[in-house]
């Protein structure tokens, strides 16, 4: 396991606010694109395939909203 899932952010409320500000005043479509840009920027900053792969798995495995998780196509 190379991905850290321990708390690492010192000012979580501030960072969370930043993530909300990303979407401020954007339409749903523009908001989706902004989120995608952020993901790409962060993925590039990480750079490591294995870490990103573990992050993708962690994101898919944690599903607390009401939507269902479709099985990953093989």
């Amino acid at each position: 396991m190379k991905l850290s899932l321990e708390p690492r952010i010192e000012r979580p409320d501030d960072v969370y606010e930043l993530l909300l500000l990303l979407h401020d005043g954007l339409s749903r479509e523009a908001s989706e694109r902004a989120m995608a840009r952020l993901v790409l920027i962060l993925a590039n900053h990480i750079g490591d395939y294995d870490v990103i792969s573990e992050a993708v798995q962690a994101a898919r495995a944690t599903q607390s909203d009401t939507g269902s998780v479709e099985p990953r196509p093989t």
């Binding site: 479509e29 989706e32 995608a36 993901v39 790409l40």
Partner: peptide, 24 residues
Amino acid sequence: SRTSRALRDAVLGLAQTHAFARPF
């Protein structure tokens, strides 16, 4: 899908100004 389209367009948008996005 809408999301994969958003991701694709995000790559194209970033590629204009950021070298890191161009290889995508």
